[in-house]
Amino acid sequence: MVKDQFLIDKLKQNDLKTLDHIYLTYKEEFLLYARRFALSPDDIADIYQETIITLYENVQNKKLVRLTSSLKTYLFAIGKFKAYKQLNHTKKIYHDGNAIHISEEMKVFETDIEQQQQAVLRTSWRKLGKKCQHVLTLYYYRGMTLDEITKALAYSSKDVLKSQKSRCLKQLKDLVRKDG
């Protein structure tokens, strides 16, 4: 545990060598473990990569600060949810026939990744202004609160930021409509 926490602390400092080390350390065991799921080896390899990336993100966006289990247990919990999601074995809420998958253990909601929709969204995203990309990335990906972003980007108030964020979302929506 002490050693695992040490690795997490290294990841916090953005030490990608540590990420490599973690990736290689658990790979074999994860692939063995994941054989119980009715998934192809390619899917499992993909899930493993996504799992390590999620770990990295969770450390970066402060979702994971202190481990309450071993790193292995934590990683396998992420991987299990991803595998369940692929197999459609998760708890879900439906929206217009689309699933929102829920992991109460990880406190995560995830949509199904609809490839075509994602492709359109990413194309539109790249056309969005840099300022908008920045605000939305801080909020949705880096896990910063509106107060934190207001301060970091020197907005005059939280309300100004909020309307900026709404404008950005609307611009993106318009782009998606055009691209889609």
Binding site: I52, I93, I100, L169
Partner: peptide
């Protein structure tokens, strides 16, 4: 709320994928 949240989750995922490609290449 569900509709709005669903769109936000999709956006989060799209941003994540954009940010991931470097890590994927690294692996």
């Amino acid at each position: 709320l569900r509709e709005r949240f669903y769109n936000e989750l999709e956006l989060k995922e799209a941003i994540a994928r954009e940010e991931h490609s470097d890590l994927k290449n690294r692996f």
